[in-house]
């Protein structure tokens, strides 16, 4: 959904999203990295009706950016910067914790 406007030289950060390798840039938030990767759409499905969603506000108020990061669910992806080796899992419907 997004692309980089500049060829800036920020170091690359390697993460995985649902097992897929994604290259982000240092300074990206988790949400920015997913929206730029393009390979993982939709961003998530809601827990209420299972409808597709993507981040809406990118400033921590809408909670449409929720993801599981390194095993911990319901993290606000728009507030958390990527770091090397981060394992991100999309939240699909009610799978907020593994039963």
């Amino acid at each position: 959904m997004f692309k980089r406007a500049t060829n800036h030289q920020e170091p690359a950060v390697q993460i995985t999203v649902d097992g897929l390798p994604v290259t982000a840039r240092r300074g990206d938030t988790v949400s920015a990295a997913i929206l730029t990767a393009g390979c993982v759409e939709p961003y998530r499905y809601t827990a209420v009706n299972g409808t597709p969603r993507a981040p809406y506000c990118m400033m921590g108020v809408c909670f449409d950016c929720l993801v599981t990061i390194d095993g911990i669910g319901n993290r606000q992806g728009c507030l958390i910067p990527v770091s090397d080796g981060m394992v991100i899992t999309r939240q699909n419907g009610k799978r907020e914790i593994e039963s």
Binding site: A5, A32, C78
Partner: peptide, 24 residues
């Protein structure tokens, strides 16, 4: 307004400022 692809202008500007991203 809940469809993926619909977001706020503030969200767009946040992506621009912090990651240098523009919509494709």
């Amino acid at each position: 307004w809940t469809l993926p692809g619909v977001m706020t202008i503030g969200a767009g500007q946040t992506l621009l400022k912090s990651s240098g991203l523009i919509p494709s």
